[in-house]
Amino acid sequence: MKSIFHPRKKISLYLDQRLSPEEVQKLEEHLSVCKSCRRLLQNMSTMRAVLREKPSVSVRKDFVSRVIAGHRRQQADEAFWIGFESVPRLLPQLAFVLVVVLALLWSWPQLEITTPEAVDDQIARVSVLDEREMISNLTTYDEALRFALNGTYENMEGDRK
């Protein structure tokens, strides 16, 4: 038995009048003998009619004023940011300045030594270190004993003289 070709895709185009006159004629001939295609056309057509009854969602009465108010707010926000448009172009310079500032902050403890108090503190620390070095250089028992009795390096030096 020979199978019949059903040009179903054309039914949709037929509804929208997107077929050539020849195609329309052929399709209508087919529809006159094909019950299933006729039913599809009928259902598609009914469905479209129902959709085109345009049941609609009610729009709130204040919808337009709300949108316009929102739009004005957006415009105000945009106007605020206009002054900052050049920020991206200045980024390299800003980065350089930031690096310089960070370098200065990092070196601050070393600079602190230049204050008078810091200098005194440093001298005191150095003299303590010198004394300890001298003790470690004492080589004889006598020297060590005399240092222990006299208490200071200066006295011992004086004895030596």
Partner: peptide, 21 residues
Amino acid sequence: VKSRLFRARKELAELLSDFWE
């Protein structure tokens, strides 16, 4: 557009055929 519109209408028609017929 043409093929998807056809598919959409066909699927809707099938879903609704029982009710409308």
